[in-house]
């Protein structure tokens, strides 16, 4: 049975990256193991925690629930690609300002999810933020600060 590696191109954080992967490799493992981008975290590996959230063609998804080979030719944005040079993304700034983390494990996923949530137009009130961010769990339970950070980023002038 032909099960060898498949060579694919992913546009990761604006740069085309060519990798050869076993078809079983999830996008999450490809980012972490093949490309060394360990900012995207693996919590549950089952779509239940949101730690692996990345943007695929600008939309938030769970990187653990898709195969790398399925995303050939697509654009992936991870936490490493969010800032422009030294200037943090407004959502990153808001998370710092609101102290929206304790251990930080869920934070990259929270931030990417928040970017998606704001882009979808779902981050209008604290209630819609709570619902829109429900795919991201935080074991430190920094939820109140996370909601404030997303609200701040969504409502500040010149927000993303």
């Amino acid at each position: 049975m032909p099960t060898g590696r498949i060579t694919i191109t992913l546009e990761v954080n604006g740069t085309p990256r060519v990798i050869a992967v076993d078809p079983r490799t999830t996008l999450l493992d490809a980012l972490r193991e093949c490309l060394g981008l360990t900012g995207t975290k693996k919590g549950c590996d089952h779509g239940e925690c949101g730690a692996c959230t990345v943007l695929l063609d600008g939309r938030r998804i769970n990187a653990c629930l898709t195969l790398a080979v399925m995303q050939e030719g697509h654009r992936v944005t991870t936490i490493e690609g969010l800032a422009s040079g030294a200037a943090l993304h407004p959502v990153q700034t808001a998370f710092l300002a609101q102290d929206a983390f304790q251990c930080g494990f869920c934070t990259p996923g929270q931030i990417l999810s928040a970017v998606g949530c704001i882009a979808e137009g779902r981050a209008t009130t604290r209630e819609t933020i709570r619902e829109g961010m429900s795919g991201n769990l935080c074991r430190c339970s920094a939820y109140p600060e996370i909601v404030e950070a997303v609200f701040l980023a969504a409502t500040q002038p010149g927000s993303p």
Partner: peptide, 9 residues
């Protein structure tokens, strides 16, 4: 149903 991330995929 599910989360926004799951619904996008």
């Amino acid at each position: 149903a599910a989360s926004a991330q799951v619904r996008n995929a």
